[in-house]
């Protein structure tokens, strides 16, 4: 039960993008088309889940026993960067069009603070191994949800009669803000 609550908490109530404001860069950058938003969400979710597992292992099996917790940032970055490289190779192999669509935002997952935040949160909140994996799945699902919602709205916006001075980045920011406001409604629903 706690695992399900953890998942819902990470995905909806404490959505990484819309209530922690982590990972805003791809949220704005890759949310023009629903299909590429879904793919980006999948890629980030994959990196998140594996990163959550590997960073937990590294933290609890290497850093804590040797008393070098100060190295958590460095080692986490190492894990995330390698994982992103792996995902990049994989996507390039499997789908070249997708690789072209995601463009610069694919290698930029490396510096996506949502993933680093996830790894640091699960250390900070002292999750066990299973919990941090579920936390990762939830965070990834939440990220995908936010991205797809945004992409859906922006696809509609293409057809909308937006006043000239609000077109482009401005209306995107307004939409992002409104989405974040909407997600505030979930605040306090689950406290974990």
């Amino acid at each position: 039960m706690k695992l399900i609550l953890l998942f819902i908490s990470a995905a909806i109530v404490n959505n990484f993008v819309l209530s922690y404001f982590l990972g805003i860069c791809p949220f704005v950058g890759v949310s023009k088309k629903v299909s590429s938003a879904v793919s980006m969400g999948m890629a980030v979710t994959f990196v998140m889940v594996i990163a959550a597992a590997v960073t937990w292992l590294i933290y609890h099996l290497i850093l804590v026993p040797f008393g070098v917790e100060i190295l958590e940032y460095v080692s986490f970055i190492l894990v995330i960067a390698s994982l992103v490289q792996l995902v990049e190779m994989f996507i390039r192999k499997v789908s070249k069009p997708l690789y072209d669509t995601l463009g610069i935002f694919l290698p930029l997952i490396t510096t996506n603070c949502a993933i680093m935040g996830l790894a640091l949160f699960s250390v900070l909140r002292e999750y066990n191994f299973i919990e941090s994996i579920f936390f990762g799945i939830g965070a990834g699902a939440g990220f995908t949800l936010a991205l797809v919602l945004m992409a859906g709205i922006r696809e509609e916006l293409e057809l909308a009669d937006v006043p000239k001075h609000f077109q482009g980045a401005a209306i995107t920011m307004i939409v992002a803000g409104s989405l974040a406001l909407a997600f505030m409604g979930f605040a306090g629903l689950i406290s974990i």
């Binding site: 590294i58 290497i62 040797f66 070098v68 080692s75 190492l78 390698s82 490289q85 792996l86 190779m89």
Partner: peptide, 17 residues
Amino acid sequence: ISMGSMGGLGALFSAGL
């Protein structure tokens, strides 16, 4: 320890990549 663990992890990941 720091050098050893980070170096080891780095080597491991680069081999994987």
